[in-house]
């Protein structure tokens, strides 16, 4: 185990290809990922930004073992986890966890918060006895009162539900959490608080995040490094500041220019800049 070796990546994806079968006899499968490579170090946040259909969610699901890659390898802590059997995969549950986008459908509406949080603990025999204490600890960590245990998800607001989902992901002290658009369903102010919670937990526990989002400013806020996805490929991958402030790839530039700034004066400038950029690129296209 290379737990103390920070130079080696915790997770490494190499040339991952994912295809979905198409409906119809002998139709060629639809290729969602065209050989994506990615590495995440312990304690690091790698932001994955892209628009709908770019394949950003699929790479997260491949890492979680929810879809099987057609080619390429994914290694976690030196172990090849590309195509694991259910049994071996289940052993990984205390290392890799997930927070989904929609806090309304990622929590079973018929279960209490206590039931939801005890679920991952049930799998580990040694944790069964101390489950109640652990649940209280988890609720405390995500800023929910311990009275939440007996309540149902529907009794909580979106932000509070997402906190429950985060607590569930943290239950087994994982080393990597795949966060799939965890704040995009939340209000602006809630979003800011939940992002701060993510950062605070990371600084305290050294967990690594793969942070998938369509919002460049969210990714910029939380990520050490940022990867930009476009049509199943990573088109740019580098330090967060560089990618989100001075992007090199034309698509990243377009993405950055398209996001409106909450300031009328600066937004006007950005708009003009964007129009100039688009005009220039369409001219190039014609030549």
């Amino acid at each position: 185990m290379s737990e103390t070796d920070t130079s080696a990546p915790l997770l490494e994806a190499k040339n991952v290809v994912v295809e979905f079968p198409m409906k119809g006899f002998r139709k060629a499968p639809f290729r969602v990922l065209h050989g994506v490579s990615l590495d995440i170090h312990p304690g690091e946040t790698v932001g994955l930004v892209g628009e709908s259909g770019s394949g950003k969610t699929t790479i997260g699901r491949a890492i979680l073992g929810l879809v099987e890659p057609a080619a390429g390898t994914i290694t976690f802590d030196g172990q090849d986890i590309t195509r694991l059997h259910r049994k071996e995969r289940r052993k990984l549950s205390d290392s890799i966890q997930v927070v989904f986008q929609d806090p309304y459908t990622s929590l079973n509406p018929t279960m209490t918060v206590g039931d939801i949080l005890s679920e991952p603990l049930l799998v580990k025999a040694d944790l069964k006895g101390s489950a109640r204490t652990r649940i209280r600890e988890l609720l405390d960590q995500v800023g929910l009162p311990s009275g939440a245990v007996d309540k149902f998800p529907r009794e909580f607001s979106g932000g509070q539900r997402q906190r429950v989902a985060i607590a569930r992901a943290l239950a087994l002290s994982p080393r990597l959490v795949v966060c799939d658009e965890p704040v995009s369903a939340l209000d602006l102010s809630t979003q800011a608080r939940v992002l701060d919670l993510f950062i605070e937990i990371q600084e305290r526990t050294g967990v690594a995040y793969l942070f998938v989002s369509h919002d460049l400013s969210v990714v910029r806020h939380i990520s050490h490094r940022v990867a930009v996805m476009y049509k199943g490929n990573i088109v740019e991958y580098g330090d967060g500041d560089q990618v989100t402030s001075e992007p090199v790839h034309p698509y990243t530039q377009k993405l950055l220019m398209s996001a409106p700034v909450a300031n009328p004066v600066r937004q006007r400038e950005r708009r003009i800049e964007r129009h100039t950029m688009l005009a220039a690129s369409s001219k190039e296209g014609h030549n």
Binding site: E3, P42, L138, A192, I201, S217, R220, H224, G240, A262
Partner: peptide
């Protein structure tokens, strides 16, 4: 004011992870 402060446009980008500061052990939560 609070809503505008919650927008992330002007928040500084997170600096690259310093190797020394990286989580070297699996911290107990």
């Amino acid at each position: 004011q609070a809503l505008l402060a919650a927008t992330l446009d002007d928040s500084p980008p997170r600096p690259p992870l310093a190797v020394t500061a990286a989580g070297t052990s699996k911290g107990k939560l």
